[in-house]
């Protein structure tokens, strides 16, 4: 049994300890907001927060994730400035990459509350959007940064 702390809940999961966290989140926990895109740390669709940092869940075995605090897209509150900004800018197209984008953006803003475009590009470089929503992603991050600065919830 592997013990996982995800979105404030504790799960006991009966899986092979070497399985990537991604697939356990998706298949065993049923949290399908976290996506599979490449399995090779190339696309960022699978990003979750582990102890507050953006990590690719396809690269971490479930055993390594044991005992750590994991947050998936489903664990981000609806009033989170990044989510609100994403809705205001109407960012998603097909939507498939967007969980990874949002999780990364939230982590970026925690690290750097006022990023400029270069900071955004540096941090978000790893997350592919095949639909090409990048311009709106930049705009949404700036908007979220503004909201957070005005005392919005981080």
């Amino acid at each position: 049994m592997i013990s996982l702390h995800v979105n404030g809940k504790r799960y006991e999961v009966d899986v092979d300890p070497d399985v990537p966290l991604l697939w356990v989140i998706r298949e065993q926990l049923g949290l399908t907001g976290t996506k599979y895109g490449c399995d090779m740390a190339l696309c960022g669709s699978c990003i979750v927060h582990i102890d507050g940092k953006a990590e690719r869940s396809c690269q971490i075995s479930v055993k390594e994730a044991q005992g750590k605090k994991i947050t998936t897209i489903e664990g981000i509150p609806e009033n989170h400035p990044v989510k609100k900004a994403w809705i205001s800018e109407d960012v998603p197209q097909c939507g498939y990459c967007q969980s990874g984008q949002i999780m990364a953006a939230a982590a970026l803003l925690k690290k750097k509350p006022q990023p400029n475009d270069a900071d955004i590009d540096d941090f978000m470089f790893g997350i592919i959007c095949r639909c090409g929503t990048y311009q709106r992603i930049r705009r949404a991050i700036h908007r979220a940064a503004k909201m957070m600065n005005k005392g919005g919830k981080r």
Partner: peptide
């Protein structure tokens, strides 16, 4: 479809189970 595509609840083929 934006709200569902920002909270992980949008269902793609790969998510159906």
């Amino acid at each position: 479809d934006t709200p569902k595509k920002t909270n992980g609840s949008a269902l793609f083929g790969i998510d159906v189970k």
